[in-house]
Design a protein around this nucleic acid. Structure first.
Length: 466
RNA sequence: GGCGGCGUGGCCGAGUGGUUUAGGCAGGGGCCUGCAAAGCCCCGUACGGCGGUUCGAUUCCGCCCGCCGCCUCCA
């Protein structure tokens, strides 16, 4: 059984399921006001790997991830660009899904949008007011954090220190600096919805409570997101559920930062890096490999150098798939439904067991990945020694386990259509057959110049991209 | 200031109280090859510093140094 770090207890503990055989996950999705950056890519990949692994473990997974399509930033950006907030949100949501598809991230089972849940958020807020834990001010409705038992559970910090750091609000009506806004009363030029407190819009922290409980029900299994969401976002979500007496998430999972040159990547630091840029400049699978080769709670350093290293590793695995003709049995990108495979003899079950053991240990993907590379070496070594059966089994196992992580290896030969290249290849074969090696080398140089790596295979000259 | 994390060989990045090595990338040597490429084999005796616990610590404890994050919208 999978053991996972839980932010609430700060310990690695078995993932206890509400319902045996089924897992419910809620992962905080993006606010769609801009194109996604590397950090968005990481959290999406981390939870995609978790989800895929749970599926491969034989569990029925329900994965919910929201789109925040109304928020200060959306409104602000929409004004800047002179479009309706809804138009802007839709535009960036499309950009989001394009990037997710490129990364091979599975679409969530449910994608709730904040704007579709406003009426239910109003109901929830009204209930909080009725219970006396929320109060109205001239500009909105706030939750009284002091009325919530255990507030600060996720933050792991004494309340007074949180209080000391709380932002200076212009709203003097707030009873405590830690209290947070549930409903924002309308300001001119903003999208609004009706409510008992007049027209306005919901605060950020309410949507996830309403949507997760609606789609997954009380006491759902896992609530995830990046580490920065712990406080205040997840703390505040939890506070609302607790205040209502509803059982909320049982397990909190948070992934670490992406750093650039050792520092947190962020717009304010000016080292912001667009996910689209990365995907355009490198094999999208390289980012998955980079993410998976570090533990999900560790920071990862994304630089041209680390990306290049990941691409080299990927090339090694692709070469394996090519050597063993694995193109046809590689994942289509969909989830692998059984980590042990369909026919047990197909795979090296001892290696699978090691993989499972490592993954079960708080998703130790770096160790799991090292096992895949070891299988690659074993497969090549066995094949070099003429032991075809064990070699093929090791190679299949490597590709299969990579697919469990969502990494599809490319076993297909690149199809060369350029007649010039085909001609150079053919002429080189003739030259080599006639042992005119100087000519053959000159032809190889020409192919290299065109950006190909040239290899001599049994069937003759073979080319691939570096 | 409060809270927390980290510091591993050229780079990335796991892990462990000692008796066997993470793994990848890069580099060196060898095998293979007409030469290469790919692949395989071999190679670096790494764990921030100072003490302590211990028969023995990179791994436990303390202190110090350095780096980073959170406490505020943020993936």
């Amino acid at each position: 059984m999978l053991r996972l770090h839980d932010t609430a207890t700060a310990q690695v503990c078995p993932l206890a399921l509400r319902q045996p055989g089924a897992v419910s996950l809620y992962v905080c999705g993006p606010t769609v006001y801009d194109a996604p950056h590397l950090g968005h890519g990481r959290f999406a990949l981390v939870f995609d790997v978790l989800r895929r692994y749970l599926i491969a473990s034989g569990l029925e997974v329900t994965y919910v991830s929201n789109i925040t399509d109304v928020d200060d930033k959306v409104i602000e950006r929409a004004h800047t660009e002179g479009v309706e907030p809804a138009v802007l949100a839709r535009r960036y949501e499309e950009v989001w899904w394009t990037a997710m598809d490129a990364l091979g991230v599975l679409r969530p089972d449910h994608v709730p949008h904040a704007t579709a849940y406003v009426a239910r958020m109003v109901e929830l807020i009204a209930e909080l007011v009725a219970r006396g834990v929320a109060y109205e001010t001239p500009d909105g409705v706030y939750l009284s954090t002091e009325a919530v038992p255990g507030y600060g559970l996720l933050a792991h910090q004494p309340l007074d220190t949180l209080r000391a750091g709380a932002r200076v609000e212009t709203v003097e009506a707030k009873r405590s600096p830690l209290d947070f806004v549930l409903w924002k009363k309308a300001k001119p030029g903003e999208p609004t919805w009706p409510s008992p407190w007049g027209p306005g819009r919901p605060g950020w922290h309410t949507e996830c409570v309403v949507m997760s409980l609606d789609l997954l029900g009380e006491g759902f299994d896992v609530h995830g997101g990046a580490i920065d969401l712990i406080f205040p976002h997840h703390e505040n979500e939890r506070a609302q559920a607790v205040a209502l007496g509803r059982d909320f998430a049982h397990h909190w999972v948070h992934n670490g930062w992406v750093t650039v040159a050792g520092e947190k990547m962020s717009k304010s630091l000016g080292n912001f890096t667009s996910l689209d840029d990365l995907l355009a400049r490198s094999d999208p699978r390289a980012y998955r490999l980079l993410v998976v080769r570090a533990h999900y709670r560790s920071p990862i350093e994304v630089t041209p150098e680390t990306i290049r290293q990941a691409e080299s590793g990927l090339a090694r695995l692709d070469e394996l798939a090519r050597r063993f003709g694995l193109a046809d049995l590689l994942a289509t990108g969909g989830p692998v439904t059984s980590v042990t495979g369909a026919g047990e003899d197909d795979l090296d079950q001892a290696a699978v067991a090691r993989f499972v053991e490592r993954m079960d240990d708080d998703l130790d993907t770096p160790a799991a990945l090292s096992g895949i590379f070891e299988l690659a070496r074993e497969a090549n070594a066995a094949a070099d020694a003429g032991h075809d059966q064990p070699a093929a089994r090791a190679a299949r196992t490597a590709a299969h386990l990579a697919a469990v992580l969502g990494l599809s290896l490319r076993g297909a030969q690149p199809t060369v259509e350029d007649p010039e290249v085909l001609d150079l290849m053919a002429r080189r074969d003739v030259a080599r057959a006639e042992r005119r090696f100087a000519d053959a080398d000159a032809l190889r140089a020409e192919l290299v110049e065109r950006g190909w790596v040239v290899e001599d295979a049994a069937e003759g000259t073979r080319v691939r991209r570096p």
